[in-house]
Write a protein that binds this DNA or RNA. Structure first.
Lengths: 130, 130
DNA sequence: CACCTATTTCGATGGATGTCTATCCGAAGG
DNA sequence: CCTTCGGATAGACATCCATCGAAATAGGTG
């Protein structure tokens, strides 16, 4: 089952509950985003003007071993957030914008007409936990 | 350090790289979303018409022990995605829409002007997160 | 106060995960 | 070929995490 398909078929969280299969697929992608190093890698690739980044450039941006960076890139690639291409001796990674867009849509709030969405509620963000 | 603050100060991933501190904060929230059970819980609460859900209702929706559900609710609360309120014997959870909205904004693609790449640095002023 | 119900907290445990070193692979140049 | 260089894989290790059962807490009701 292709992860991007699952993302495309999953309604926004605020619209209706996810079923178990959708949740399993979506969770795999969010889990990939749940690491600071991977988030930074993704933002480096996503914000790069040319659209692609060489692995060596990414490795230089962290004080981590090269295999560790390679591992994180693999994770981001497996969930469909990045693709890679080898040219000559170097490997270039680039963003898969569709996946990122689907994730964003999944978290979208209902259109902010106060009486609209099923989950429109008067914001009570004051109460803090802990 | 308040997590919602970090989210508010973090630019979209496609705009510029996250620094280490931002990435650490954002990763905590995504990590909370990186579990299928928590995703389903969140979608149940977020899509509930009344806006709030009793713990007992959530527990009934899963074949997991009640302490396990309580643990997941605690995680979602600690990262600012849910709040809880006790009334009589029951505890009700509700969504914090601001946090979800900030996350969605973080993953937003740059305004889709076809000529620009997904990481066009010039079109950055458009996407604002509040 | 004693009891019941709803929920949280505690402690333990098996499995996943991030990181490292060492090693391997693939491409380019002698 | 042999070497070198960029990058991926393999294996090891420490830590984290989802889950459970047991116990503690809080509110409601006798």
């Amino acid at each position: 089952m292709e992860l991007l398909e699952i993302l495309e078929c999953s309604p926004p969280l605020t619209r209706e509950p996810l079923d178990a299969e959708q949740a399993a697929g979506v969770a795999r992608v969010f889990k990939a985003l749940g690491d600071p190093v991977r988030l930074r890698i993704l933002s480096i690739v996503a914000s790069r003007a040319g659209g692609e980044v060489c692995v060596c450039d990414i490795t230089d941006a962290f004080e981590l071993s090269q295999p560790t960076i390679s591992h994180h890139l693999k994770v981001l690639k497996e969930v469909g957030l990045l693709t890679s291409e080898r040219r000559a001796s170097w490997v270039y990674y680039r963003l898969v914008p569709e996946t990122l867009g689907e994730l964003s849509a999944l978290l979208t709030l209902p259109t902010s007409r106060p009486a609209d969405g099923p989950a429109s509620l008067t914001a009570t963000a004051a109460a803090v936990s802990r």
